[in-house]
Design a protein around this nucleic acid. Structure first.
Length: 299
RNA sequence: GCGCCGGUCGGAUAGCGGCUAUUCCAGGAGACUGUAAAUCUCCGGCCUCACGGCAUCGUUGGUUCGAGUCCAACCCGGCGCA
């Protein structure tokens, strides 16, 4: 019998964090964040990180675990999350994974076995300078199989494949043998509502000092280049703070980028047919969620 | 009123008279094996899809074998002079 875990997921701005706390209180749970940006210390307002007060005493994990200068990744996430989950289960509590980073969630929930090859920054830097054609040829020599199926336009993925093949001889097929019995709850809202929530939230974030946070991070040594790579609010704050764009531009462009991001999240989650979806504007959704979780835990 | 400049897909933009009118952004669909808020792909006038066909570059007319590209008039916008 696999241990039971609860997963709260969905696109940004649907209120996942609050629901997770709510369910944690009801079902004696502890929360593991699944957000690729909230792992970074000091990135709070821009990521919409839950505050101490909002946690209502429920333990949260995978928040603030690394300096934003350090690049975190799925493999690190999965390894650490698995340990935390094991510990929570051992203590007889319910692990609740909550977040919007589909890849991170799946790595844990589906137990994706990632090839044991850590990033090789020097190699990446070297390969980055080569043309796609050259890289494809190189990959084809190393692993003809994968070179047929790989996204031949995506340099980053080709480089990673080369990186793996250089060490393992080839890119191993993916293994997904789930070790948990997971119930996945998805929060969603109609597009127009979601867009509206995203915009209002952005305005509010700026209101409560998001730009100061960006400034502070930069002062503490976080380069604009790194901020650019962190995406969304940090990317656009970097552009604004370095004088490339106006504040107005930042707001309108960032707003549509966040919406595009939400759409990509929806696309990712759409393939997962095991998710129980709940529309956050429907009044009875919360009750339904409670019922379904209750039933799941008793079964 | 005169002069100059300009009117090309939602916005911005390219287009020595000659094959399928360009690129960027916004918009839509999708991919995702250690950067995943990243990275990448496709779509975008109409004919219900494909094949194929028909359009289209402010308007009208003209020159030309052929016009977004040249000419004329008109309409609209900007600037300058009055």
């Amino acid at each position: 019998m696999k241990p039971k875990i609860l997963v709260i997921l969905g696109p940004t701005a649907t209120g996942k964090s609050d629901l997770a706390v709510d369910l944690a209180l009801k079902f004696n749970g502890e929360i593991i964040s699944a957000d690729s940006r909230q792992v970074y210390k000091g990135m709070d307002l821009g990521t919409g990180k839950i505050t101490k007060n909002e946690m209502l005493g429920v333990p949260h994990y995978m928040l603030d675990i690394v300096n934003p200068k350090t690049v975190y990744n799925v493999a690190k996430y999965k390894a650490r999350a698995d340990k935390i989950i094991a510990d929570i289960i051992k203590r007889g509590k319910l692990p609740i994974i909550c977040g919007g980073t589909g890849f991170y969630i799946d790595s844990v929930v589906k137990n994706i076995t990632l090839p044991d090859v850590p990033p090789n920054d020097k190699l990446r830097e070297k390969l980055e300078k080569e043309s796609i054609e050259k890289l494809l040829k190189l990959l084809n020599k190393l692993d003809p199989e994968i070179s047929k199926t790989i996204d031949s336009k995506n340099k980053r993925k080709i480089i990673r494949a080369i990186e793996i093949a250089k060490v393992l001889g080839k890119v191993p097929p993916i293994k997904t043998e789930s070790r948990y019995d997971a119930i996945q709850i998805g929060l969603i809202a109609p597009d127009q509502i979601l867009k509206d929530r995203i915009f209002k939230r952005l305005v509010k974030r700026i209101d409560i000092g998001m730009l100061k946070e960006g400034q502070r991070l930069h002062k503490q040594g976080l380069s604009f280049k790194r901020m650019e790579a962190l995406g969304l609010e940090y990317r656009y704050m970097a552009r604004y703070l370095s004088g490339q764009i106006t504040k107005e531009q930042m707001i309108t462009e960032l707003n549509s980028k966040i919406w595009q991001f939400a759409r990509r999240q929806k696309t990712w989650f759409k393939r997962n047919k095991q998710i129980y979806w709940f529309d956050i504007i429907k009044k009875n959704s919360i009750i339904k969620v409670n019922n379904i979780v209750n039933k799941f835990l008793k079964a």
